[in-house]
Design a protein around this nucleic acid. Structure first.
Lengths: 199, 199, 199, 199
DNA sequence: TATGAATGAGACTTCATTCAT
DNA sequence: TATGAATGAAGTCTCATTCAT
């Protein structure tokens, strides 16, 4: 009963991807099982119920999938840098890279992230504490302090600030006409580099 | 028939307040007319329909109410300061002040602000462009630059960053156990003051 | 308790007229108390309920009013003629006259007449048997037969046919572009005169 | 997903028939989804919504079904005749035949036909223009004229008259106690044959 | 008399989920 | 495994009617 077959995994992946696209396209409140099926040409909502115990479980999987992709990308960027200042810049620009490569995932995440009050119901509390949260960034900032590169009074607060700033700029990047994502990344890096400046 | 009576205004206010509390308590997706009625001890959802043309109209009024409260508070804080640096600090701390005084309003706003995709449906597009947006802050930063107090490469981007940072810190302030909101305000002010530093 | 004051009658008349206009304009199914109030700038649906025991009673009064107007008109036309053939023609043309003079009443009647199954509920059964029905016409035809002017195998059937033909032509008169109602009246008179022709 | 299955067709048919019976029995205004379900012993109104996109769509299907049945019957009758006079008689008697064979359908049609104002909302405008209308009859009369059998000043007007007469007699046939539908058919045929008489 | 706020039943519709096949 | 018909709860909204003022 434990473990999943290859076919099952493929179906689950298909459904998760369909959900992400639907979320990105029509928003959370309109994303019903029916809507997901329409978007992915799935034959019946029963298929979704068959593969997922419920809507919360599906959304949890969706969130996991998105955060994993974003995390992998970020880790790749960050680890290439040797200085903590460089790592911070990489952390920031990986956000924009993610949006450029997986725009649907990015938009879907925006939809889900807004649902603060839903998270418990979605079983996302552990997720929130890890990936949605800023642990990684906090650690990065703290190590940078210890290494003498940064001078930050309260790393968790700065981490939350950076994350919120990133999300918000990403969310509204459409405002910047022919959004030059690279430029945005550079500017934000600049902004937060100044904050961390050891004198 | 034309215009609103005193009684009507009172009821509308009551319903709006009940909606805000409901949003704060159980989140957007669970906030049905029925749920609102439970919160306000109203006898039937028909009463809400009687006073508001529809759900979008109710939510528009809710948003208006919240933003007005937040705006008034902010204006008060900001105008007391004479320097632009002071104004920026006041802008930031007014956010925390709002959260301290009207926690339900603040949490409700978080729920609504997440509904990027819903805004058109809710008729919030004009609202989004003014109060939900960062216009005020952009102007403040630009004037500060012109006055020689700030040195900011791209005010709109910084404004979005500040707003996002504030929202995010406010959203997760519960993480900081015995949240000392004053301290948070000071730290964020410090962070963003450094970014705007004219050399 | 019996009897009505002058004011009451005026109000009742006003409401009845408002209802007729509403029926004519938006059709039976959309004619709610609220819609009637909008159309007549009445301040509250309570006013209607105050003056009429219920919706059926209002509609009965509406029907009575319309049929009375139509009946008066018809009687006037018919009695001016001396021959039964003339009376039949007058009967027919009075229908078009009614439509020309009271278009809203005519259209409203169309809306009500369609509701065959509602009539009992509306307490219109007696009405249907008298004014909505063809008694008058049947008598006219029978007397014409006795007078030797007509030769009709089964007057009630012809009467129903005439009435139905009239209603239908009136209902669809919009089809005839710049409907020349006079011409239509003449043609129908011609048609049914031929049917009644004594050899 | 595409196309309809056998089961679906069966259910749709069942619902359409149930609707027709309900319309015939309690009239248009009382025919709610709930009422239809009672009539067909369906468990929930959701079932109707599952099979039909909305109430207008259901009513359109109902109308289509009724008109198709009536049309088939009529065509069969009419085509068996060789003279235009014969065809006119067949056209008329097919109406009574329809009423005799499908009394519920006939009564339901009466209910729907009354909703002149609703037709656009019901998407019945095209239907109204073809089957609810008198095109067929107009053509028949015109061809009869060309063939020298009829002498009719204005075929569309006569057609409307015939249709209206038929509907009205059918509608009130209950008045004729032991309604001998055959006799009624013969009398109406007689009436309208006289009108079309070429001298 | 008139007002208009309130009520509660009932309308249509959407939805996640179940279940026989 | 997959299908898709069916279910029933819940949602928003409309409406005639009631009632305190």
């Amino acid at each position: 009963m434990r473990g999943r077959t290859f076919t099952q995994d493929a179906r689950r992946t298909q459904i998760v991807e369909a959900t992400i696209e639907t979320l990105a396209e029509i928003g959370y409140t309109k994303t019903s099982f029916t809507a997901i099926c329409r978007h992915a040409n799935l034959s019946s909502t029963g298929l979704i119920s068959y593969h997922f115990a419920g809507k919360p479980q599906l959304l949890r999987e969706v969130t996991r999938t998105i955060l994993e992709k974003a995390g992998t990308l970020r880790t790749g960027h960050v680890e290439q840098e040797t200085t903590y200042r460089g790592k911070l810049g990489a952390y920031i620009s990986s956000h924009f890279d993610f949006m450029a490569r997986y725009p649907a995932h990015a938009r879907a995440l925006t939809e889900i992230a807004g649902l603060v009050r839903e998270r418990p119901a979605l079983g996302l509390d552990d997720v929130a504490r890890s990936a949605l949260s800023v642990e990684t960034l906090v650690v990065l900032l703290e190590e940078g302090c210890r290494a003498g590169e940064f001078r930050i009074p309260d790393p968790p607060v700065l981490a939350l600030a950076v994350q919120g700033a990133l999300d918000n700029v990403v969310r509204h990047h459409e405002l910047f006409a022919v959004a030059d994502l690279g430029r945005l990344a550079r500017e934000l890096t600049d902004i937060f580099t100044r904050c961390t400046l050891a004198p």
